[in-house]
């Protein structure tokens, strides 16, 4: 790999790291400082959960979209929600959702 390609990798890596670190440190220094903010801005608190919802929307798309994979997705999400409703934790609903999604896919594959 050429030196210029390595430079492109390092530039992309450094830029990405700075986008993750600088806003975090800036906000942490501003919070509870004498001249800064006492609380996080409201819009930022709203944007956080919406970003999670957006990541959910992107990840709903099946790897190989087809009628079966969309059906498996709908059933899998329903079961995930159902198990979450009962146990109110993160682990079991995910395991149940993946298992049901997998069963539907395997049945369709057979």
């Amino acid at each position: 790999m050429s030196t210029s390609l390595w430079l492109a990798i390092f530039a992309s890596a450094l830029g990405t790291l700075l986008m993750r670190v600088v806003p975090f440190l800036w906000m942490q220094r501003r919070l509870n400082s004498e001249t800064g903010l006492n609380n996080m801005p409201q819009w930022l608190g709203i944007l956080g959960p919406l970003m999670i919802a957006a990541v959910l929307g992107v990840s709903i798309m099946p790897v190989n979209p087809s009628a079966i994979s969309w059906l498996a997705t709908a059933i899998g999400l329903f079961v995930t929600l159902l198990v979450w409703w009962r146990v109110r934790s993160l682990g079991w609903p995910v395991a149940a959702g993946v298992a049901v999604y997998g069963v539907v896919q395997v049945i369709a594959y057979i």
């Binding site: 919802a53 959702g97 395997v106």
Partner: peptide, 27 residues
């Protein structure tokens, strides 16, 4: 099928993360 089934863990996980906010109409 492995590459198709395993990624479903992500939407399932994110769904359980945002589900508690569905008690509020605006959210």
């Amino acid at each position: 099928l492995l590459g198709e089934i395993m990624p479903f863990a992500l939407p399932a996980l994110f769904l359980t993360m945002i589900a508690p906010r569905y008690t509020d109409k605006r959210w």
